[in-house]
């Protein structure tokens, strides 16, 4: 049989990552929608609750994390829906490289576009909420390792619902319960840090969630996509 010089796994990964980032940068909604949603939700709380510092600093970790979680949920649809609608997904499934490499590249691109901007803007919004000054480190660390978990778990939900016309509600129902552990341990870490206590335990658990989802989610997503496009 003809031997064809196919790209290595790393080349295929980089090609896919570059393609998705190019598309996102030209389709600016992808970047600004979740970010703007995050900023609006967080800034509305001081207006609704009142400017009292002690109340705000008590609820700040929860607000920031819930807003980040919902902003991620809002952006998940873009992950495979557009590719499914225009036929690109079919082509990706027929690429000689294993599907999980393509999937991994797409999820990482999604995080770079939606998760990373949240991390940059979060400390500014935390000032607005009078977050305890001991908590900034914990906030940044939990967002840095927690938001990729949201992207990885969310990708499984999107892959399962991509073939359904109105899968939005179903997606929330599948994904939100799986986000709860991240939310609990992240806010707990930030609260613990505010009391000047070590929070490495909570961070370790989020880290474990990160490595589990990083290594296993691409396989689950590949399998789910095969079912969805059947």
């Amino acid at each position: 049989m003809m031997s064809i010089n196919i790209p290595s796994y790393r080349q295929a990964f980089m090609l896919m990552l570059k393609r998705d980032l190019t598309i996102a940068l030209r389709h600016k909604d992808d970047i600004f929608n979740p970010l703007l949603f995050f900023i609006i939700v967080v800034t509305l709380f001081p207006l609704g609750i009142g400017p009292e510092a002690s109340t705000l600093s008590r609820i700040a970790p929860g607000i920031i994390w819930v807003a980040a979680l919902l902003a991620t949920l809002l952006s998940l649809d873009r992950l495979f829906k557009a590719d499914f609608a225009d036929g690109s997904l079919e082509q990706m499934m027929l690429i000689p490289q294993p599907l999980f490499i393509i999937v991994l590249a797409k999820i990482i691109a999604h995080w770079l576009i939606t998760g990373l901007p949240l991390i940059f803007i979060a400390p500014v919004l935390a000032v607005l909420l009078h977050l305890n000054e001991n908590s900034y480190g914990a906030l940044m660390i939990t967002l840095l390792i927690g938001t990729p978990v949201l992207s990885f778990i969310g990708a499984i939900g999107v892959a399962l619902t991509v073939g359904i016309k109105k899968g939005g509600v179903l997606l929330s129902l599948i994904v939100l319960p799986l986000y709860i552990p991240v939310l609990i341990f992240a806010t707990s870490a930030i609260d613990t840090a505010a009391m000047n206590l070590p929070y490495s335990g909570q961070v370790a658990i989020i880290g474990a969630l990160f490595f589990t989802s990083f290594t296993l989610a691409p396989f689950a997503v590949s399998a789910a996509l095969k079912v969805s496009t059947n």
Partner: peptide, 14 residues
């Protein structure tokens, strides 16, 4: 997949 090219009725163009 190394030996196959499939073009469906959706063009797959971004």
């Amino acid at each position: 997949n190394q030996n196959l090219t499939y073009i469906g009725h959706l063009a797959g163009i971004k």
